[in-house]
């Protein structure tokens, strides 16, 4: 029942969406945007930053749909808002090109290839895992994934400003996370992120107060 309702909802949404696309006189532009994003979604291996390069090539160098400095602004925004960078970038570019409809088309375009591919894989994954040599390969691959996560973390560490505050924050978060996990204490990562945001705001406020005091003292 639940499934039926959701399917109905999705179908209705898709119909409304397609109707919207076809009825607008901007449909050609939106179709083009959708297919560019579909292509980019299909060929980005290796996460958001690889996609930024493809987007730059497609929208700035080749088609000149965006200015270079606006593109740089877009990258900064996509990096500093929650969510996958490629989704953020696609939504932003879509909106700039064609408003809300454009952003929906661009986001759908960039997601559809990976959705279809992963969905197809997930259908066969269980039987695939049963094969003996595949299972053996996956035991090696599990270690490979640990190395990937570790190197992603180290890369983030390298790109960070190495102030005492930052290093202390990294160390403390790491230690807390590992200790909580070892003692089977549940403390959601969401809280770490919120605490980090509050600390950042607090540090900024303290700095601002100090500055304010100094200028007042000068007067």
């Amino acid at each position: 029942m639940c499934r039926y309702l959701i399917c109905c909802g999705v179908v209705r949404f898709l119909i409304a969406f397609l109707w919207g696309i076809w009825m607008k006189d901007r449909r050609k532009k939106i179709n083009k945007l959708f297919f560019i994003m579909l292509k980019i979604g299909l060929f980005t291996f290796g996460g958001g930053y690889a996609m930024i390069a493809l987007l730059e090539n497609e929208f700035v160098s080749k088609r000149r749909l965006m200015q270079a400095d606006e593109f740089a602004d877009m990258v900064a925004i996509a990096e500093s808002t929650p969510g996958p960078i490629s989704i953020n970038a696609a939504t932003y570019i879509g909106y700039r090109q064609n408003g809300v409809l454009g952003s929906a088309a661009a986001t759908a375009g960039v997601c559809i290839p990976s959705f279809v591919i992963i969905y197809l894989i997930s259908l066969f994954f269980d039987t695939f895992e049963q094969i003996q040599w595949v299972a053996a390969a996956f035991r090696g691959i599990q270690v490979g994934v640990v190395v990937l996560i570790l190197s992603a973390g180290l890369k983030m560490l390298r790109q960070m400003q190495k102030t005492i505050y930052n290093m202390a924050c990294v160390g403390l978060t790491m230690a807390c996370l590992i200790i909580c996990s070892l003692f089977a204490v549940t403390f959601s990562s969401v809280f770490y992120i919120l605490i980090g945001a509050m600390l950042g705001l607090g540090a900024y406020y303290v700095k601002w107060l100090c500055k304010h005091r100094k200028t007042e003292a000068k007067k």
């Binding site: 973390g153 590992i178 705001l201």
Partner: peptide
């Protein structure tokens, strides 16, 4: 400022997860 606070925490979370999985 908030983002500057979040960045090192995220780095710590990723490294910590790598440690747990290791």
């Amino acid at each position: 400022a908030a983002l500057n606070g979040i960045r090192p925490v995220i780095t710590g979370l990723v490294l910590g997860t790598a440690g747990i999985l290791f």
